[in-house]
Design a binder for these strands. Structure first.
Lengths: 338, 338
DNA sequence: ATGTACAGTCGAACCGGTTCGATAAATTAT
DNA sequence: ATAATTTATCGAACCGGTTCGACTGTACAT
């Protein structure tokens, strides 16, 4: 690979002149610039990104940290982020925490070591646990999906309360009263918000939500499956289920299917977020879907802006909330007449 | 961040001694080593990966290049690769070519510039197009999924001919004779192999495959959808379809559904590779699935071995082919009696 | 006592860029 | 003609490590 010294030698100028010609063209004489540029392109010279990173302290990579790449929500998001990054001439350094805060910490240290220009983070840290590694991070960082108040960081996400509220209202309007929610741990931002949306809407309809009506499926399909089985083994069966995520909804649907409980005739089911090929799943699950492309683009943009203005006096942290869309499927009906 | 010079100053030794104490412990006096190590850990020193990369010419990252992160096949693979890499203390630099060879080239140059230790590549380059960027790549590189003969590179993949053959045989045994395949372009390795498996099995059963019985769905769901619509608008309708991938099968199934053609009563459908939640899709598509976890682990292992032995005289390129598994669904039946 | 081997340590060069302050040459002002 | 300013270029320091060859001092063989 050609180095800047090769170019300098061939152009019969010093390496500093070459560097200047390339990075600050106005500071060298036009003829010199021409000569340097011509030679540089003729031997296919381009500056070594590693050397530039060492000198400047930042690379042309952005880090993306998610809890589970396999979740289609993150998959789609990642795709969009990668497209954006490519346009801006950045590469994506990806990592998956698997929901382990210790690993999240390790990953972020790794990324910092690689001098990523910034990080897009969907943290798996729960309320009450330490978030010092985020707070003390000395580089641009935009949180998405999972928020932490009072962290003073940018955030891009969806209106999770609204998502749950829309779905709950839909069920209430159909006449359901006995509704269960399958959610995540309350330590997780999105599950807390989604639970709130559920509780508030129920309460507004004059129905008090008992704690045992909100079950923790940990955002996992297998847990949702088990819980649903158990739920319908008991005496008091709900007539409808609000699933706090796409995979929870699918796990629940699988359980209903295996129990030969008809959805929507016997039990209605709604969920949050889409899955690929949802049109082929019978019944198609009525859901409040996040606008992933908007979300990804906005998060990328915000990060890029932070990267650009890094070092200057930073703007106030910004929060951007998108509204989910209600997509009707065939998974809801009036409750069976009792 | 603490540098090696800080440690040297505090330990009252030269920086070279610090470096030796850390990297080649036997070459310094035990007491010196102790002192250096103690001070290093007390001020939280760890070597700057960027500086190490600049000096050594290789980083602790591996590049992974796929054609479409959104495809669950790659999603699963990626997850597994990332887990493996993490264990070996490597990070994953990810990119998505979107099926564009020019972009693949650009991405690989980018990765080479980042001094990745090696690359896992599922190339989108087709037979007959230039693969010089792979051939001339001067770093460890393991191809997966998409093979190129005579490239002299390691390869990990599945037995694509077998996959298609198993499915075709299954349909033949049910009594189908008029079978269509929805595949990819023949320039792509996997589609060529899968078509071969189909053709050979049909021929062995005494059925000649006319060219119009293999259609190019470009491994895209929307193309598969359109083609299926068109196919069943015509006079001669096949009684069964072999889809060369998961997304093709889903596109085809959606089309059948929209045409109110019953699967499997009117038309049988089989495909290659799984999709998440396939159990919820009605009918569940009978498919030959690749063992993604094995594939990912093997590819990672091979790459790590190449990385370890890099510089020494390299072992012969290795090829590793896994057998797909036939997973029965409910998407096939005897052909309707004509 | 002299020569040899070796363990332990160090300075300096190097990886490949960027950037600051100095210098020399060309231009303008006095 | 001389001083002040501007323009173009360059050398050297720096980013933070690794590594080679040289140097010193001790232990052993002759």
């Amino acid at each position: 690979m050609a180095t800047i010294r090769d170019v300098a030698r061939m152009a019969e100028v010093s390496i500093s002149t070459v560097s200047l010609a390339l990075n600050d063209p106005d500071r060298v004489k036009p003829e010199t610039r021409e000569k340097v540029l011509k030679i540089a392109s003729s031997i296919g010279y381009s500056a070594d990104p590693i050397a530039q990173t060492l000198k400047s302290g930042r690379s042309k990579m952005i880090g993306v940290v998610v809890t589970d790449i396999n979740n289609p929500f993150f998959g789609n998001l990642l795709h969009e982020i990668e497209q954006q990054a490519y346009k801006d001439n950045y590469m994506v350094l990806l990592s998956d925490t698997g929901g382990d805060p210790a690993r999240e910490l390790a990953i972020m240290n790794h990324m910092a070591g690689q001098r990523v220009a910034g990080i897009l983070l969907s943290t798996c840290v729960q309320e009450g646990q330490s978030i010092e590694h985020i707070r003390q991070l000395k580089m641009p960082c935009v949180l998405f999906d999972q928020q932490f108040d009072s962290l003073g960081r940018d955030f891009v996400g969806s209106d999770n309360e609204l998502a749950a509220a829309m779905l709950t209202r839909h069920l209430l309007e159909l006449g359901h009263r006995d509704i269960c929610m399958l959610g995540g741990a309350t330590g997780i931002f999105t599950s807390r918000m989604r639970a709130n949306g559920f509780i508030d809407t129920m309460r507004a309809a004059g129905i008090e939500v008992r704690p045992d009506m909100i079950l923790d499926a940990e955002y996992r399909a297998d847990r949702a499956y088990d819980i649903t089985l158990k739920l319908f083994a008991g005496q008091r069966r709900p007539t409808a289920i609000v699933a706090a995520s796409n995979v929870i909804a699918l796990g629940a649907l699988q359980a209903l299917k295996d129990l030969a409980i008809d959805c929507p005739e016997d039990v209605s089911l709604v969920g949050i977020d889409d899955v690929p090929w949802s049109g082929l799943i019978v019944p198609k699950i009525t859901s409040a879907v996040q606008q992933i492309d908007l979300l990804a683009r906005k998060a990328s943009q915000m990060l890029m802006r932070r990267i650009a203005e890094y070092g200057k006096d930073a703007a106030q942290p910004e929060t951007c909330i998108f509204s989910p869309k209600l997509v009707m499927g065939g998974s809801t009906a009036k409750p069976p007449s009792s």
